[in-house]
Computed example of a mutant assay.
Amino acid sequence: MFFQRGTQFPCEVIVNDPEVERLHRRVTHSSLTATAVTRKGLGITKLEASNRRSAQTEDYHPLPPGSEAHWEVVERILFIYAKLNPGQSYVQGMNEIIGPIYYTFANDPNIAFRENAEADCFWCFISLMGEIRDFFIRTLDDSESGIGAMMERLMSNLRHHDHQLWNRLRTQELRPQFFSFRWLTLLLSQEFDLPDVIRVWDSLFADANRFQLPDPSLHSNDGIAKRCYAAERFWLQYENSAALPSGGCPGTAQQSH
């Protein structure tokens, strides 16, 4: 696994100084217990507890002196972030956010960029968390920017665009907390393989309104949806053209100069 391998550019100050205590020796690892809801037919609903620490987690062991694993670099970034943000600290799931970012920088074909993967990853992670940090603050769950409000807007959009699916989820009592909580907080990083996650994120981060789900109740039936659909078809038709026609976008008046 990539994160268990040694990095090509370990932090020399840490790995070569015997007086510096490695972070993995200072941090206490704990095991989390999760509770799953199971239901068989019309029988009684049961809660089953399970230990979330797996054998794969145990494989994250430190490398010999003089070397450093990729997971140690990520651990250091998260540790520094927690120290710089004591009001939020580290919350479970942040490691899933930073993973694809670090992987991308650490595998850059340019060796100079790979050498600075830790610093670049740190600042990109800081920037991204600045946009989604409210998702990881429990006291803000019910605020307008919190994860609770985001899940409500997601379900409102689903009800507006696919009422049949929304009704199916409602009748089966599949609350958004059961599935969309992880989708939104971890940005789908747990739903796809890493190459697919990077591709999804590439499109997500290119959108200026990436974390703003619209409220469908605020839109009226004044033809805006039809005009947007027409514009979308127009751009799809000419996206590979060298030049666009001079007639202007469909559904809009041509501006005079």
Score class of each variant (00 low, 15 high):
residue 256 S to L: 10
residue 231 A to L: 12
residue 40 K to R: 07
residue 39 R to V: 03
residue 239 E to T: 05
residue 91 V to T: 14
residue 1 M to F: 10
residue 20 V to E: 08
residue 65 P to E: 09
residue 154 L to S: 11
residue 75 E to Q: 14
residue 213 L to Q: 04
residue 130 G to R: 08
residue 237 Q to C: 05
residue 116 N to S: 13
residue 95 N to Q: 15
residue 5 R to N: 14
residue 168 R to Y: 14
residue 40 K to E: 08
residue 31 S to H: 12
residue 126 I to K: 15
residue 101 I to W: 00
residue 31 S to D: 12
residue 70 H to M: 02
residue 28 T to D: 03
residue 73 V to I: 15
residue 156 S to D: 12
residue 158 L to T: 07
residue 184 L to R: 01
residue 37 V to G: 00
residue 209 N to L: 13
residue 94 M to C: 05
residue 137 I to C: 12
residue 124 C to I: 14
residue 244 L to F: 12
residue 106 A to H: 05
residue 213 L to P: 01
residue 5 R to Q: 15
residue 22 R to V: 02
residue 238 Y to N: 08
residue 34 A to T: 04
residue 69 A to W: 03
residue 257 H to E: 10
residue 148 G to S: 11
residue 70 H to C: 01
residue 102 Y to D: 06
residue 224 I to T: 14
residue 186 L to W: 03
residue 213 L to S: 06
residue 210 R to G: 02
residue 33 T to L: 05
residue 34 A to F: 02
residue 91 V to H: 06
residue 34 A to E: 07
residue 173 E to A: 11
residue 133 R to I: 15
residue 139 T to G: 13
residue 162 D to K: 11
residue 186 L to Q: 08
residue 147 I to N: 05
residue 187 L to M: 13
residue 223 G to F: 04
residue 48 E to A: 03
residue 31 S to Y: 10
residue 212 Q to I: 13
residue 111 I to S: 11
residue 52 R to Y: 00
residue 97 I to C: 00
residue 135 F to D: 09
residue 242 A to K: 07
residue 33 T to F: 05
residue 140 L to D: 12
residue 31 S to N: 13
residue 230 A to Q: 09
residue 250 P to L: 01
residue 252 T to C: 06
residue 108 D to R: 02
residue 252 T to D: 02
residue 12 E to S: 11
residue 77 I to P: 00
residue 215 D to C: 04
residue 50 S to C: 06
residue 218 L to P: 00
residue 135 F to T: 04
residue 129 M to G: 07
residue 206 A to V: 01
residue 15 V to I: 11
residue 120 D to I: 10
residue 63 L to P: 01
residue 146 G to M: 08
residue 101 I to P: 00
residue 74 V to R: 07
residue 200 V to T: 08
residue 54 S to L: 08
residue 178 F to S: 12
residue 24 H to R: 07
residue 23 L to K: 03
residue 243 A to K: 06
residue 235 W to D: 00
